[in-house]
Design a protein around this nucleic acid. Sequence first.
DNA 1: CCAATGGAGCAGCTGAGAAT
DNA 2: ATTCTCAGCTGCTCCATTGG
Length: 502
Amino acid sequence: MTQKMTKHFFLIILLQKVDNVSRFLRYVQPTGDEPTLDFLQKTIETRDYFVKLEATAMSPATILNYMKNIIRFLDYLKTRVDLESSNPELRHRWDTFVGGMKSVRKCQEILQVAKKDFLNLYGKLITNQPITENEKTMYGYYLEAVMVFQHFQRPGAVEGMTVDEFVNRKECNGRVVVGIKQHKTATMQVAALALTLEEDAWFEAYYQHIRTRHETVSCQSFFIGSTGAAVHKVTNDIRRLQDMYKVDRSTSQEVRRAAETQAAKNFTPAQKEKVARYMAHTTQVAEAHYRMMLPEQTAETAELMMVLNDLSPDNSDGRGNLPEKVLPKRQFSTFLENFPVTLDGSAPPAKKRKEAGFPAEDRSLTDKWHKIQRDHRAEYLLSKFRHRQPTQRQFDRCVEGMKWETNKPKYPTVLKLWTPPHKEDIASNKQLIRSVMTQRWKGLSIKDFGGDKGKGVIVDKQRLHPAGLMTSTASSGGEEGHRASMHENSQRTNRGFTLLDS
DNA sequence: CCAATGGAGCAGCTGAGAAT
DNA sequence: ATTCTCAGCTGCTCCATTGG
């Protein structure tokens, strides 16, 4: 093969890659001319694209090739655009896409990886050796991670834990039980966790040595940031800790779901209920009796849940053997094909969804369906108020006229979408221009004012209306709005302006 | 100048309860 | 009993502030 041919060959390959990527971009962003980076957020569309590819007759190698092209494109973006943090983020998204559900153990990876450093710090703390601010932060991060990944608490519970609650903890059957009132949630759930004695010592060390670095009486939160205020976003802290150790990201939602799934597989109903309560889920049974477990139960459940870690299959060594049902079959585009969004229709009921092969309990598809319908409806309503912002009353009346039972767009939402009409409408509106040019009213004529002013409509002196209405020039943008506002009013005023429509 | 942290804002998720 | 809605939570990115 000559060098020239080789070059040509590579060029073709290059063009194919560009094609592959642009098809993907067009898929996740169906409208608009300029590609944006929004697709990084649109998880459903992105997943959908690959699921759809899979559904075609393409070979796995082809699809893999597409994925590679897209990954390379994203790598390129990373270096070109300032997306330095996109790599772990992409990896995370990639994992959730390819890997399916993680095991509990996999989610807890950070705890194992960082444990050595952490214990090192712990040793320094209890022997009163000095440690840096950074290390203090890291220590706090790790404890937060313990609460989330080992004890399956919500980030909200971690943020909400107060000093009092920690001080008032109770020892029980070899565990230390802490109750947390989550004031954040409307239902006032109470979370409880049972630390092992070892973990308790870690928390105690934090309380004694690190939390005291800022003597702020005002802050009741157990975890405080470097500034002395309550820790703000536990999810952020945990992600930073994971990135620090270059560990695949896991989230509280993931680990909680994984724990639930494994509990469902392996536990008896009674045990499952205890787990649910430990994780501060409200089950109907828990609701009926008491909101908080007794300390003994909490400690017992915590022991039970330790089993989850061991039951969890250890697939930490890469993803060579993926579990069978890895891809969640949530194809939104197929969903839309089956159940097109219409202005007046309603979302498909569970039965029909199931018939079409969609998991009935998956709400995300229906949710998105509703959202799209709301958007369509808002757009439709907007088209009725092109020239002027509707008042609340006008809007309400309009919505009422639609006879929609549910999923009605809100007034503020529509107002936010409203944009003033473009001036170009007047300049380029052919009908309008033709109407002006061919108008036959006596006494009106077109005059060129020269310079920037351009042409305008003038009235003969004798016919000048007392109001002087027609002396304005056609090039003024106010005309549109004015005409629109008259539209709903009396015949009389309306007729005065039909000149433009005829 | 820099990194670490806080915070705004968005999309998705979830639980609860109302509506049907 | 299912569906719809609401409100609040979660996870994430980007960007501003801050403190060294």
